[in-house]
Design a protein around this nucleic acid. Structure first.
Length: 392
DNA sequence: AACCTCATCAACCGCCGTATG
DNA sequence: GCATACGGCGGTTGATGAGGT
């Protein structure tokens, strides 16, 4: 398959360029420019080289203002952050680093930077709560509306370039990552890591999570997919969603750009109980869906009323309601929200003071494929967040 | 000194998108 | 509308050198 060769391979020289060839090419282009045609250039310049080879030699080595040598910490940071955000789009990354070529950056990432990050991450992971026999925590810290501002550029980019959207498959051609709020961050801090290394560590951990939990499925409210079961780990502080337990709610809610997030507290006169009301509404530009979700909780932290609109939008939500007012302790209650195949809630509840991981079973290939699609949405959300927190 | 292993990076290969006739 | 040529890109290869045994 593929197109015909651009030149007669039998009559062109291959391999490293000699100084004489470099000189011929540089002199020709200095005098005549590339002429917009690389295929005919080598003949005109007196070179027995393929046009593509000339182009590559010029772009990667001979053209003015090429920067060689060590990458700076700042360049490291940019590469890491952009890699986390857009994957191996080396030409795009190179465009942000004047003087660097995509080939240089690609080589640097593959031979040095990636190893550096992985070595660091492996050291940090040794003290992490993420181990093979313990499920990885559900991603549960998400951006708020105000944090999503710079994500418009990301959306715009992929709207214009849908084919270049990072592939979020189990091959991990592209990584996403979590914000470092779990105990692992202590290891991060102890060695004085840079923001870049933090990003890299996140990449590594996310990779581990996927290895450990192939069928991770985020809890999706409003989807047609069945949430079949939930499980919890035993860590009181083991995931990325441990925040201030004495907040009325943790904002463990994905709030896509343009959304508003309302938190209400009011009295249920009929039952003489205090209720929390939670409402998420807006337009999800990523999924092109309208989104309306609302929940009310009584003082026992049970959902007493829930609704979604007919668009059944996808949303990722972990609800934590502090029950200190009820139990008087340092408890954090998880509300598990299960879905049937339709669009209504069929079960709500939560009964322990542990971090809870939404961890559904996938029972068929179709389910798995659906889960992968959902995971992609989830990871895109996390990428948005990481880009803001680690890069911006 | 000879051999081996590994890291580096320039260069190549083949595919894709787009321009052109 | 189609076929072809070309530029651009990302993945991969292989030559080279450094360091270790």
């Amino acid at each position: 398959m593929g197109r015909a060769p651009c030149c007669d391979k039998a009559n062109v020289k291959k391999g490293p360029w000699s100084p004489e060839e470099d000189s011929k090419l540089k002199d020709y282009i200095d005098k005549n420019g590339t002429g917009g045609n690389w295929i005919t250039l080598p003949h005109k310049a007196g070179l027995r080289r393929c046009g593509k080879s000339c182009r590559l030699r010029w772009l990667n080595y001979l053209r003015p203002n090429i920067k060689h040598g060590e990458f700076s910490v700042e360049e490291d940071r940019v590469i890491c952050s952009l890699y986390a955000t857009i994957g191996s789009r080396w030409s795009i990354i190179a465009a942000q680093l004047p003087g660097r070529t995509d080939n240089d950056i690609k080589n640097y990432w593959n031979t040095k930077l990636k190893k550096k990050l992985m070595a660091f991450a492996a050291a940090a992971a040794a003290t992490s709560s993420i181990t093979p026999d313990k499920p990885a925590p559900s991603p549960s810290i998400y951006p708020t509306s105000s944090q999503m501002t710079s994500l418009y550029s990301y959306n715009s980019y992929y709207s214009a370039n849908p084919s270049k959207k990072p592939l979020m498959d189990d091959n991990q051609q592209t990584f996403s990552c979590h914000r470092m709020t779990n105990p692992t961050s202590a290891a991060t801090t102890s060695v004085g890591t840079s923001c870049c290394l933090e990003t890299g560590l996140s990449l590594f951990q996310t990779q581990m999570q996927h290895q450990n939990q192939q069928y991770y499925q985020p809890l999706m409210l409003g989807s047609d997919h069945q949430q079949t079961s939930c499980s919890s780990n035993t860590s009181d502080n083991g995931g990325t969603s441990c925040g201030n337990k004495h907040d009325s709610y943790q904002n463990n809610v994905v709030v896509p750009s343009g959304f508003e997030f309302d938190d209400e507290l009011h009295l249920d006169n009929q039952n003489n109980k205090q209720r929390h009301g939670l409402m998420l509404h807006g337009y999800d530009e990523i999924n092109n869906d309208n989104l309306f979700l609302s929940h009310q909780f009584d003082h026992q932290n049970s959902i007493i009323n829930s609704s979604t609109d007919n668009d059944a939008p996808a949303a990722l939500m972990d609800f934590y309601v502090d029950d200190a007012a009820v139990g008087g302790g340092d408890k954090q209650q998880q509300l598990n929200v299960n879905m049937n195949n339709g669009r209504s809630f069929i079960n709500n509840g939560g009964d322990n003071n542990h971090q809870v991981i939404i961890n559904s079973k996938i029972t068929s290939l179709q389910d798995h494929q659906q889960a992968m699609m959902m995971k992609e949405k989830d990871e895109r959300m996390m990428m948005y967040y990481d880009f803001n927190t680690n890069y911006c």
